[in-house]
Design a binder for these strands. Structure first.
Lengths: 363, 363
DNA sequence: TTGAAAGCGGTACCAT
DNA sequence: ATGGTACCGCTTTCAA
């Protein structure tokens, strides 16, 4: 027989309410009675108020759901994501709130929607989830407070987010390149698709509208920023040598970079949309005996510790702070809706992997 | 007015049960009716069955709680922990189960116990939590399936765990050292205490019983293994130069190593209880112009990627597999209780940071 | 201070 | 295939 609050009440000879109070509102009853109740409970092996029953009644769970980049287990592969999660966890801790990592299936199948529907949480934090993902619509259905890390496609005064002006960041990086005289630029992206790629795949765009149609905020915006800067210098969209990597990892970056570096019209600069990819580019160059910053310039994004160590020119942003703010927006939201729409600064960090385009190499 | 299952039932003109079935057991009603119900629900803006209410009734939540090393946000700092979490997440995903990261407060105060009591989960996974932590006792109270990564102090046939024979692993590492002629050995540990250290602190043990009293499984066992191996070669416990670092990080390792390397009777070997600490030892040596494997031998533990790159002699274990197995034990437990008590293998990986004790340095 | 009663929002068994 | 009806386990007015 299971021990419930009721059994404790019976054993002590008081009502359920009193036992409940003994746990949740100690000031509502005499210390002696409370002690008597608690000790009896202990003897009976009562585990304390049932969390689910309690939250049903209270209308609050004490946890927020985290919707992470496509596959949950992938999140732990990405240092930037991990830092973000850490910041979020910090804030959650301070509010005695748990983090529920919601299991999203690989292909974003039906069960992803279910997972979101079934998540017992008070709110959601969405971290870079593609627009097409079923979890997105399931999320809308739940009508819970939500904070995203991207700019929602349709921003309403209600939406809350902690975004980064990705396009502005890459635009400044692109300007650096054109100032250095680069005209042949390769770009490595990791544009997750419903089904993963098995090998690096060239992407060709002819019309800027195609860029705008990309269903992932970060990919879309970062690419747009680079395009805008380069276009300013007269470089057209089709001239960009864009390669979609098989994932966001060093290895994937290396493989993708290979496709660019082995071209006859090798780019004088290769930019990657994440540092992890950029580190892969460096690996690919090392193998080929190329010097970063001299033979080919390289730019990353994120400013991971490894980027600093490796002297990689990159764009700095602070995932820890971003995570903390996301948590705050959810657990302690500012009264003014405008304060719930945050844009974090970035900084172009110029290090050793960028240099002037080789003069003789200019065509 | 809030939209509940009842309102949908009323609107369609059927009973609650039928609406419920439309969501949870589609085979129990005609497709037409189901469609009618679902579309009405949509129109009404019904968010679907309330997760909490549903789990209350069903007696199952669809999430497992994760109790992590003291502070949740710290977990994301430790690559080994992250990999473990990743393995756990993988298995959870396969079982359509979420991971609830339970917020444990820094000092393990009362709220940690509350957090465990209030966690709406079907089971718990405990990852290297000190014996004294309040969450431990709160956990016992919950009487839920639990899997730990350490050998419980009192093992019952019921307990489930995925442990590693830490002592055996470090014993073999210790034997390597004695074979190489090392007699002055420094050991760097990260023995978390209720309150964190602000600087590396020497630890001195005189009696093996003191070792056995250490309240952290990994620290206790790893230390014991080293002691046993070294003692075999006639080295006594007080001779060991043990330093407790201020955390499990490269920086903390470097600081702790400093204390050992700057001694007049500098150890000929410094072993660290984690790779992160060992990497810090290498940093400290670099600064001092010492060669690992020649001037001082270094051994780590975990075999992180950085250890391989750095040629660090270390003990390999597989956190990913460990996480997966922990998940399995919780979500798909083997019938035979004996199969729920797992000991994973380790492997001593000898690389470049170990070498013979300098002959002239033997005293 | 303590108790009675009405939910919180569903699910599942058992009839019909 | 549908509906009726307990009941999941607790919290919270409100009265006593």
């Amino acid at each position: 027989m299971k021990v419930t609050l009721q059994s404790v009440a019976d054993a002590v000879g008081v009502s359920r309410s009193t036992v409940s109070n003994a746990y949740s509102r100690p000031d509502q009853l005499s210390p002696e009675l409370r002690e008597r109740i608690l000790s009896t409970a202990r003897q009976l092996g009562y585990a304390g108020p049932h969390p689910t029953a309690r939250s049903l009644r209270r209308g609050r769970v004490g946890a927020i759901g985290v919707l992470f980049t496509d596959v949950l287990s992938y999140a732990f592969t990405d240092p930037y994501a991990v830092q973000f999660l850490r910041g979020l966890a910090e804030t959650a801790e301070q509010h005695d709130t748990g983090l529920l990592l919601v299991p999203l299936s690989l292909d974003g199948g039906v069960d992803s929607a279910r997972a979101v529907q079934d998540a017992a949480v008070d709110g959601f934090c969405v971290y870079c989830l593609p627009d097409w993902h079923p979890a997105r619509s399931a999320l809308a259905g739940r009508q819970l407070p939500t904070v995203t890390t991207d700019l929602p496609r349709e921003v309403t005064p209600q939406s809350a987010f902690v975004r980064v002006d990705e396009a502005a960041a890459t635009r400044s990086a692109g300007e650096l390149l054109t100032q250095l005289g680069h005209r042949r630029v390769g770009i490595i992206v990791d544009w997750c698709r419903p089904q993963a790629l098995t090998k690096p795949t060239p992407l060709s765009f002819t019309d800027p509208a195609e860029l705008a149609a990309i269903d992932e905020y970060e990919t879309r915006e970062r690419l747009r920023g680079y395009y805008e800067a380069l276009n300013e210098a007269g470089i057209t969209l089709p001239e960009l040598m864009i390669v979609n990597a098989t994932g966001n990892s060093r290895e994937a970056g290396e493989a993708a970079a290979g496709q660019l570096l082995d071209r006859r019209d090798r780019p004088t600069a290769v930019v990657a949309l994440t540092d992890l990819l950029a580190l892969g580019v460096l690996d690919a160059m090392t193998i080929r005996g190329l010097w970063p910053g001299r033979d080919v310039s390289v730019i990353g994004y994120d400013d991971l510790p490894e980027a600093e160590v490796g002297g990689v020119t990159t764009i700095r942003q602070d995932p820890l702070v971003r995570g903390r703010l996301a948590g705050r927006l959810l657990l302690d939201p500012p009264d003014d809706p405008a304060d719930r729409q945050l844009t974090l600064p970035t900084e172009l960090v110029v290090r050793a992997t960028t240099g002037p385009a080789l003069a003789g190499d200019d065509r």
